[in-house]
Computed example of a mutant assay.
Amino acid sequence: MIINSYRMYTLLERAKNRIGHDGFIELNAIFNNAYREKRSKEIFASVFFLGVKAHRYVDRDLWEQVDPTERFKQMERELLLLQGMTPRQLLNVFPIDKVYDKTGEIKDYFTTMKFIEGYGMDRRIDDVLSFLWDYSNRDLRIYLLDYMTVLSDLEKKDGKPSLMEQFLFDGGMTND
């Protein structure tokens, strides 16, 4: 059975909202703080997982019609869910791509594991974007690309050059 991209995106968004809503009700009903904290991390990981996965199936034309400010707010809320998790927990949700590069010029499994071991497997992730930038997972790369696109769209909306235009300008490339 083939499911089109829009249908898959809609299903993932509904699941994300349902898990978030049901999880919120559950967390408010539980008085055991240790269980509540453990369960909240599981719920946040589930909502973040579905938010990231949805970006694989989003209709790009519809996505770009949404106001950049709204897109940015949605993605920021999803990134906040990841804040405070540990690399060990992230590995369970988004495993590292099993890609091996003999040249050492691209991120692969070994460079990502070396980065995580240097960071600490059980240390909280506070700077989420910086951490994800060095993490090798296809879904997260798509998500980060969409995030960078939203930032660029926000700059253009404010009448400033896009991130790529600014990068080229800073590098000495001009329209001349």
Results as ranks from 00 to 15, higher is better:
Phe48Asn: 05
Asp101Arg: 06
Pro161Leu: 01
Glu105Phe: 09
Arg88Met: 06
Pro95His: 06
Thr86Pro: 05
Asp22Ala: 10
Glu26Ser: 12
Lys73Arg: 11
Leu129Arg: 09
His21Phe: 11
Arg138Pro: 01
Val93Thr: 14
Ile96Met: 01
Asp126Glu: 15
Arg71Trp: 02
Gly104Val: 03
Thr112Val: 01
Ile142Phe: 08
Leu27Gly: 04
Phe72Pro: 01
Met85Thr: 13
Val52Ala: 08
Trp133Asn: 12
Pro87Cys: 02
Leu163Gln: 01
Glu37Ser: 15
Glu42Ser: 09
Leu81Phe: 06
Lys53Gln: 11
Thr103His: 07
Thr10Leu: 14
Asp146Ala: 09
Leu129Ser: 01
Lys107Val: 04
Asp59Phe: 05
Tyr6Phe: 14
Val58Pro: 05
Glu78Asp: 09
Gln65Gly: 07
Thr103Met: 07
Gly172Asn: 05
Arg77Asp: 14
Lys38Asn: 15
Ser40Pro: 00
Thr111Ala: 10
Met164Thr: 13
Gln74Met: 10
Leu132Asp: 03
Asn92Val: 01
Thr103Val: 08
Met75Thr: 09
Phe115Pro: 00
Arg88Trp: 03
Met8Lys: 07
Ile3Asn: 04
Ser136Lys: 12
Lys160Pro: 02
Phe131Pro: 06
Leu11Lys: 04
His55Arg: 13
Gly51Thr: 08
Gly20Ile: 01
Tyr147Lys: 07
Leu163Glu: 00
Arg18Thr: 12
Tyr35Pro: 00
Ile106Lys: 12
Gln65His: 09
Leu79Arg: 05
Ala54Phe: 02
Ser136Asn: 14
Phe94Val: 03
Gln89Pro: 02
Thr111Arg: 07
Trp133Arg: 13
Tyr109Phe: 15
Thr149Trp: 05
Ser5Met: 11
Lys157Ala: 13
Arg77His: 08
Phe48Glu: 02
Lys102Met: 13
Ile2Met: 14
Val58Arg: 08
Asn175Asp: 09
Thr174Cys: 08
Tyr6Gln: 15
Tyr147Gly: 04
Leu132Ile: 04
Arg56Cys: 06
Glu13Tyr: 06
Ile30Tyr: 03
Ala34Met: 12
Gln89Tyr: 10
Asp122Tyr: 11
Leu27Val: 04
Arg36Glu: 02
Glu42Met: 10
Leu154Lys: 08
Trp63Ala: 13
Asp22Trp: 07
Val99Gln: 05
Asp22Asn: 07
Asp108Tyr: 05
Gly172Leu: 00
Leu81Ser: 01
Leu145Asp: 14
Glu26Ile: 14
Arg123Leu: 06
Ser130Cys: 07
Trp133Ile: 05
Phe24Tyr: 12
Thr174Ile: 11
Leu12Trp: 00
Arg56Gly: 03
Val47Phe: 02
Glu165Trp: 00
Arg56Leu: 14
Val99Ile: 11
Ser46Gly: 15
Thr10Ala: 15
Phe31Cys: 04
Asp108Trp: 03
Lys73Phe: 08
Lys114Asp: 14
Glu105Asn: 12
Phe72Tyr: 10
